[in-house]
Protein backbone atom coordinates (compact mmCIF):
# COMPACT_ATOMS: atom_id res chain seq x y z
CA UNK A 1 0.00 0.00 0.00
CA UNK A 2 1.25 3.52 -0.77
CA UNK A 3 -0.11 6.97 -0.09
CA UNK A 4 -1.31 7.45 -3.68
CA UNK A 5 -3.44 4.32 -3.58
CA UNK A 6 -4.69 5.07 -0.05
CA UNK A 7 -5.74 8.63 -0.95
CA UNK A 8 -7.21 7.25 -4.17
CA UNK A 9 -9.31 4.69 -2.28
CA UNK A 10 -10.44 7.32 0.23
CA UNK A 11 -11.37 9.67 -2.63
CA UNK A 12 -13.37 6.84 -4.19
CA UNK A 13 -15.07 6.08 -0.88
CA UNK A 14 -15.81 9.79 -0.37
CA UNK A 15 -17.41 10.00 -3.81
CA UNK A 16 -19.61 6.97 -3.17
CA UNK A 17 -20.69 8.17 0.28
CA UNK A 18 -21.23 11.74 -0.98
CA UNK A 19 -23.58 10.57 -3.72
CA UNK A 20 -25.49 8.22 -1.41
CA UNK A 21 -25.91 11.01 1.17
CA UNK A 22 -26.99 13.52 -1.47
CA UNK A 23 -29.71 11.24 -2.79
CA UNK A 24 -30.81 10.23 0.70
CA UNK A 25 -30.91 13.73 2.25
CA UNK A 26 -32.48 15.43 -0.79
CA UNK A 27 -34.75 12.38 -1.27
CA UNK A 28 -34.19 12.83 -4.98
CA UNK A 29 -31.95 11.41 -7.69
CA UNK A 30 -32.52 14.22 -10.17
CA UNK A 31 -29.48 14.73 -12.36
CA UNK A 32 -28.03 11.33 -11.43
CA UNK A 33 -27.62 8.66 -14.08
CA UNK A 34 -29.13 5.44 -12.76
CA UNK A 35 -27.43 3.58 -15.60
CA UNK A 36 -23.97 4.59 -14.43
CA UNK A 37 -24.82 3.50 -10.90
CA UNK A 38 -26.08 0.16 -12.21
CA UNK A 39 -22.83 -0.25 -14.12
CA UNK A 40 -20.81 0.56 -10.98
CA UNK A 41 -22.78 -2.05 -9.01
CA UNK A 42 -21.94 -4.53 -11.79
CA UNK A 43 -18.29 -3.47 -11.68
CA UNK A 44 -18.01 -4.15 -7.95
CA UNK A 45 -19.97 -7.39 -8.14
CA UNK A 46 -17.79 -8.87 -10.88
CA UNK A 47 -14.53 -7.55 -9.40
CA UNK A 48 -15.02 -8.61 -5.80
CA UNK A 49 -16.18 -12.18 -6.30
CA UNK A 50 -12.86 -13.15 -4.71
CA UNK A 51 -14.18 -11.59 -1.50
CA UNK A 52 -14.77 -15.06 -0.12
CA UNK A 53 -11.92 -16.92 -1.78
CA UNK A 54 -8.86 -14.72 -1.17
CA UNK A 55 -8.02 -12.58 1.82
CA UNK A 56 -5.56 -9.73 1.23
CA UNK A 57 -6.09 -7.60 4.36
CA UNK A 58 -8.81 -6.34 6.67
CA UNK A 59 -8.66 -3.02 4.85
CA UNK A 60 -9.08 -4.69 1.45
CA UNK A 61 -11.99 -6.86 2.53
CA UNK A 62 -13.82 -4.14 4.44
CA UNK A 63 -13.51 -1.63 1.58
CA UNK A 64 -14.86 -4.21 -0.87
CA UNK A 65 -17.87 -4.86 1.36
CA UNK A 66 -18.50 -1.12 1.81
CA UNK A 67 -18.25 -0.46 -1.94
CA UNK A 68 -20.68 -3.26 -2.78
CA UNK A 69 -23.19 -2.27 -0.09
CA UNK A 70 -23.11 1.41 -1.06
CA UNK A 71 -23.40 0.64 -4.77
CA UNK A 72 -26.51 -1.48 -4.26
CA UNK A 73 -27.98 1.00 -1.78
CA UNK A 74 -27.54 3.77 -4.36
CA UNK A 75 -29.17 1.70 -7.09
CA UNK A 76 -32.02 0.85 -4.71
CA UNK A 77 -32.60 4.53 -3.88
CA UNK A 78 -32.63 5.50 -7.55
CA UNK A 79 -34.75 2.69 -8.98
CA UNK A 80 -36.99 1.86 -6.05
CA UNK A 81 -37.27 4.36 -3.22
CA UNK A 82 -36.98 7.63 -5.14
CA UNK A 83 -37.79 6.32 -8.59
CA UNK A 84 -40.39 9.08 -9.01
CA UNK A 85 -37.50 11.55 -9.14
CA UNK A 86 -35.45 9.49 -11.59
CA UNK A 87 -34.90 11.46 -14.78
CA UNK A 88 -35.67 8.84 -17.48
CA UNK A 89 -35.73 11.40 -20.26
CA UNK A 90 -32.13 12.46 -19.81
CA UNK A 91 -30.60 9.13 -18.73
CA UNK A 92 -30.77 7.70 -22.22
CA UNK A 93 -27.22 6.49 -22.91
CA UNK A 94 -27.38 2.97 -24.40
CA UNK A 95 -25.48 1.09 -21.66
CA UNK A 96 -25.61 -2.11 -23.72
CA UNK A 97 -23.24 -0.40 -26.15
CA UNK A 98 -20.74 -0.43 -23.27
CA UNK A 99 -21.41 -3.81 -21.66
CA UNK A 100 -21.37 -5.94 -24.82
CA UNK A 101 -18.06 -4.73 -26.34
CA UNK A 102 -16.44 -4.72 -22.88
CA UNK A 103 -17.67 -8.27 -22.31
CA UNK A 104 -16.21 -9.37 -25.64
CA UNK A 105 -12.90 -7.64 -24.98
CA UNK A 106 -12.63 -9.29 -21.56
CA UNK A 107 -12.76 -12.69 -23.29
CA UNK A 108 -10.11 -11.69 -25.81
CA UNK A 109 -7.65 -9.73 -23.70
CA UNK A 110 -7.04 -11.02 -20.18
CA UNK A 111 -4.28 -12.39 -17.97
CA UNK A 112 -5.80 -15.81 -17.49
CA UNK A 113 -8.71 -17.55 -19.20
CA UNK A 114 -10.52 -18.51 -16.01
CA UNK A 115 -14.02 -17.36 -14.97
CA UNK A 116 -12.81 -15.28 -12.01
CA UNK A 117 -10.05 -13.59 -14.05
CA UNK A 118 -12.32 -12.89 -17.03
CA UNK A 119 -14.91 -11.35 -14.70
CA UNK A 120 -12.19 -9.27 -13.03
CA UNK A 121 -11.01 -8.11 -16.48
CA UNK A 122 -14.60 -7.35 -17.51
CA UNK A 123 -14.95 -5.28 -14.34
CA UNK A 124 -11.76 -3.32 -15.05
CA UNK A 125 -12.78 -2.54 -18.63
CA UNK A 126 -16.36 -1.71 -17.61
CA UNK A 127 -15.28 0.66 -14.86
CA UNK A 128 -13.28 2.69 -17.36
CA UNK A 129 -16.45 3.56 -19.31
CA UNK A 130 -19.13 3.26 -16.60
CA UNK A 131 -19.26 7.03 -16.05
CA UNK A 132 -20.21 7.75 -19.66
CA UNK A 133 -23.99 7.65 -19.09
CA UNK A 134 -23.56 10.19 -16.29
CA UNK A 135 -21.36 12.51 -18.38
CA UNK A 136 -23.76 12.08 -21.29
CA UNK A 137 -26.71 12.99 -19.03
CA UNK A 138 -24.97 16.15 -17.83
CA UNK A 139 -24.21 17.14 -21.43
CA UNK A 140 -27.91 16.63 -22.24
CA UNK A 141 -29.25 18.57 -19.27
CA UNK A 142 -26.48 21.09 -19.87
CA UNK A 143 -25.62 21.43 -16.19
CA UNK A 144 -24.86 19.58 -12.95
CA UNK A 145 -25.53 20.41 -9.32
CA UNK A 146 -22.38 21.33 -7.45
CA UNK A 147 -22.58 18.22 -5.25
CA UNK A 148 -22.74 16.06 -8.40
CA UNK A 149 -19.66 17.89 -9.68
CA UNK A 150 -17.80 17.21 -6.43
CA UNK A 151 -18.84 13.56 -6.71
CA UNK A 152 -17.44 13.35 -10.24
CA UNK A 153 -14.25 15.15 -9.22
CA UNK A 154 -13.57 12.63 -6.43
CA UNK A 155 -14.55 9.71 -8.64
CA UNK A 156 -12.31 10.86 -11.49
CA UNK A 157 -9.53 11.75 -9.09
CA UNK A 158 -9.38 8.28 -7.53
CA UNK A 159 -8.31 6.55 -10.73
CA UNK A 160 -5.91 9.40 -11.56
CA UNK A 161 -4.27 8.73 -8.17
CA UNK A 162 -4.19 5.03 -9.02
CA UNK A 163 -2.15 5.86 -12.12
CA UNK A 164 0.42 7.54 -9.86
CA UNK A 165 0.21 4.47 -7.60
CA UNK A 166 1.01 2.22 -10.59
CA UNK A 167 3.97 4.39 -11.53
CA UNK A 168 5.19 4.25 -7.93
CA UNK A 169 4.75 0.46 -7.75
CA UNK A 170 6.51 -0.02 -11.07
CA UNK A 171 9.59 1.89 -9.90
CA UNK A 172 9.57 0.63 -6.34
CA UNK A 173 8.63 -3.03 -6.73
CA UNK A 174 8.63 -3.62 -10.48
CA UNK A 175 4.91 -4.43 -10.32
CA UNK A 176 2.59 -3.41 -13.15
CA UNK A 177 -0.70 -4.66 -14.52
CA UNK A 178 -1.07 -3.44 -18.09
CA UNK A 179 -4.83 -4.17 -18.27
CA UNK A 180 -5.54 -2.06 -15.18
CA UNK A 181 -3.15 0.68 -16.33
CA UNK A 182 -4.57 1.02 -19.86
CA UNK A 183 -8.17 0.95 -18.59
CA UNK A 184 -7.27 3.39 -15.81
CA UNK A 185 -5.78 5.81 -18.35
CA UNK A 186 -8.88 5.59 -20.57
CA UNK A 187 -11.07 6.16 -17.50
CA UNK A 188 -9.10 9.20 -16.39
CA UNK A 189 -8.98 10.67 -19.90
CA UNK A 190 -12.79 10.54 -20.04
CA UNK A 191 -12.84 12.92 -17.08
CA UNK A 192 -10.37 15.43 -18.52
CA UNK A 193 -13.05 17.62 -20.10
CA UNK A 194 -14.97 17.56 -16.84
CA UNK A 195 -11.82 18.25 -14.75
CA UNK A 196 -11.14 21.35 -16.85
CA UNK A 197 -14.66 22.66 -16.35
CA UNK A 198 -14.60 21.75 -12.66
CA UNK A 199 -11.33 23.59 -12.02
CA UNK A 200 -12.26 26.65 -14.07
CA UNK A 201 -15.88 26.90 -12.96
CA UNK A 202 -17.03 25.00 -9.92
CA UNK A 203 -14.08 26.10 -7.77
CA UNK A 204 -15.23 29.70 -8.29
CA UNK A 205 -18.73 28.82 -7.17
CA UNK A 206 -20.28 28.78 -10.61
CA UNK A 207 -22.60 25.99 -11.69
CA UNK A 208 -20.98 23.43 -13.95
CA UNK A 209 -22.46 23.45 -17.44
CA UNK A 210 -21.08 21.15 -20.10
CA UNK A 211 -21.48 22.30 -23.68
CA UNK A 212 -24.74 20.63 -24.72
Amino acid sequence: MNVFRLVGDLSHLLAIIMLLKKIWSSRSCAGISGKSQLLFALVFTTRYLDLFTSFISVYNTSMKVIYILCAYATVYLIYVKFKATYDHNHDTFRAEFLVVPVGGLAFLVNHDFTPLEILWTFSIYLESVAIMPQLFMISKTGEAESITSHYLFCLGGYRALYIINWLYRFYSEGFFDLIAIVAGCVQTILYCDFFYLYITKVIYGQKLSLPA
Binding site: D9, H12, D50, I56, N60, M63, D112
Partner: peptide, 10 residues
Protein backbone atom coordinates in the same frame (compact mmCIF):
# COMPACT_ATOMS: atom_id res chain seq x y z
CA UNK B 1 2.49 -18.44 -7.82
CA UNK B 2 -0.69 -17.73 -5.84
CA UNK B 3 0.59 -14.32 -4.85
CA UNK B 4 0.80 -12.93 -8.38
CA UNK B 5 -2.62 -14.27 -9.34
CA UNK B 6 -4.27 -12.31 -6.54
CA UNK B 7 -5.34 -8.81 -7.39
CA UNK B 8 -4.32 -6.90 -4.29
CA UNK B 9 -5.82 -3.59 -5.41
CA UNK B 10 -9.44 -2.49 -5.04
Amino acid sequence: NGEEDKHDEL
